[in-house]
Amino acid sequence: MRFKGLDLNLLVALDALMTERNVTAAARSINLSQPAMSAAVARLRSYFRDELFTMAGREFIPTPRAQGLAAAAREALQHIQLSIISWEPFNPARSDRRFRIILSDYVTLVFFERVVERATREAPGVSFDFRPPTDDNEDLLQRGEVDLLILPEIFMSNAHPRTKLFDDVHVCVGCRSNKQLSEPLTFERYMSMGHVVVGFGDTLRLGLEERFLLEYDQKRRIDVVVHGYSMIPPMLSDTDRIGTMPLRLAQHFAQILPLQIVELPLPQHLPFTEAVQWPALHDSDPTSRWLREMLVEEGSRLTSPLAASELLINPGQHGYCPAQL
């Protein structure tokens, strides 16, 4: 079918090429032979009067024109999928939707387990594909390659809708044998001690505490950089190093590791709001809305994190006060 001279099937080919960045893989993904895909590429180039794609060795490189067309083509196809093809009322019990979600190990451990359990009861055919935060979270969301993004709200753009899930604060953690944490931690001692920090994405962007310290031109001693918050506690065992992490996750690990939790000697203990964001095009998608509503409901059921000022300086048997949980 042609629309103003454009064969609309070519949009499907263009989207596959921009997603796979490989002619053979793109052809396979939309059930075309490689000669048919090559013919589609030739027709795309002719219609748009642009090379669209070039090769540098084995690297598939889209031209600026192709990059500009990619988001529009993906949005058009998603709109057809959501508003024309997926016209039946949503029934969770019959859905086989696979949700692609960017989230941290922190959210997975302290929050999403309960979401998966509930989804299994209400929609046993629904599945999840968890992906770690990257350097191009917003681009993946824009292209529709992920369904949801769950991050601290401060790291989200205003380009897509979002809503709050829950609040948390940061705390300092160390091994229970770390004698430097046996008394209130001063800012000077915090900065001088060896740190285990988490880095996100390919460039290992550091967390909220590093953002605060850089703003005030402060630099701490970083001994180890890990790829997730869950890797911080094991790196502290039997050492004098410390780490900075969300309180909810610290309390989770304090139940299974000799971890002590102390106040973070930074202003307001770096509170943050964890939020969920989705592509604007999915705002009225009933399946996405069903999951988003579930996330908000489960987030509202989380108890407020204990105020950092109430944390024990000398933790008990498990590194925390049982009354805190």
Rank of each mutant, 00 (worst) to 15 (best):
L249K: 13
T273P: 00
L257G: 03
D283L: 08
D285V: 15
H252D: 01
S300R: 07
R292S: 02
H282A: 10
D283V: 02
M294G: 03
S288Q: 12
R301V: 11
F272Y: 12
H282D: 07
A307L: 13
L270Q: 08
A254R: 10
A275R: 02
R301N: 14
L291G: 04
S288N: 10
L247K: 12
H269T: 11
R301M: 06
A254N: 07
A250F: 07
E298H: 12
S300M: 11
Q251L: 14
V296W: 00
L295R: 00
E297Y: 01
T273F: 13
W278P: 00
F272C: 10
L249V: 12
L302K: 03
W290S: 09
L266H: 15
V296T: 06
S284C: 14
I256Q: 15
R289E: 05
Q251H: 10
T303G: 14
P279A: 01
P286N: 05
A307G: 05
L249M: 10
S300G: 10
A254M: 14
L259P: 00
R248G: 03
L270D: 01
P265Q: 15
T303S: 07
E298I: 13
P286G: 11
I261W: 10
A307S: 13
T273R: 15
Q260D: 10
T244D: 03
P286V: 12
D285R: 09
I261N: 02
E297L: 04
L306D: 08
I261Q: 01
L291F: 14
R292T: 07
T244S: 12
E263H: 14
G299R: 02
A254E: 06
S284K: 01
T287C: 09
F253A: 11
V262C: 11
P246Q: 02
L249D: 04
H282G: 02
H252C: 03
L259E: 09
